[in-house]
Amino acid sequence: MDFTEDQIERYSRQIILEQVGGKGQQKLSRAKVLVIGAGGLGSPIALYLGAAGIGTIGLIDGDVVDLSNLQRQVLHTTPHVGVHKVESGRRLLEALNPDVRVQTYQEHISAENIMTLLPDYDLVLDGSDNFGTRFLVNDACFFAKKPLISGSIFRFEGQLATIKPHEGYPCYRCLYPEPPPAGLVPSCQEAGVLGVLAGTIGILQANEAVKEILEIGDTLADRLLIYDALEMKFRSVGRPKDPRCPLCSANPTITVLEEHHVSCSV
């Protein structure tokens, strides 16, 4: 793949990095990345990966832009309130970087659609907003052998992990075997999130995605990174493989993709 002069100029600040170079930029340009959710996490993920020149970005989200999203979902702008998030996201990404091919899926991720989407992508970033989707994405990526970069946020806390059980690392269920009981998910009134926190964790996910594509640096494949935005502290916790994991152990109890419905208790 040859780069045009404009492309060389556009990516010059990263091509100059020894760990990236022209070869690395080619890897980024050939990479196909699926972003689950075009919201708080998906916005910074898509913007930074788009800016970095990732070749194909898939966006899946069934929602439309709401005014209350704009506090943290920076992929969307005020004139796009009421527009489908994937369409709003596509427009901004194409304006940011016309090199990027944006694939949009205007639907919620489900056990039915996810296995048909995954073969088209090299890497998945989960920015979903509920436990049910999180377990579904983990399980689907395990079955499809796709690396997953998982981020989640709640109030002032964020968590980040790279999930690659097909390379011998733990999966999400090694740490959290099952979704929590529905009644224990905090109600919507109780919940909340600092907008900047979504940016922080989403950008860290994008960082790990770029490294995964370039095959550079250390990964979070056997760790969980925990960020406390109030105390301004990062904590990295070892994440061992669970020999009794219901999904990725030698004797799994989950052998087919199933959906968990965990709704918030109002």
Partner: peptide, 15 residues
């Protein structure tokens, strides 16, 4: 001790 958090896109905060 790792808290179980699942948020990200916004739905759970919006419903």
């Amino acid at each position: 001790i790792l808290s179980f958090i699942g948020g990200g896109a916004g739905g759970i905060f919006d419903c």
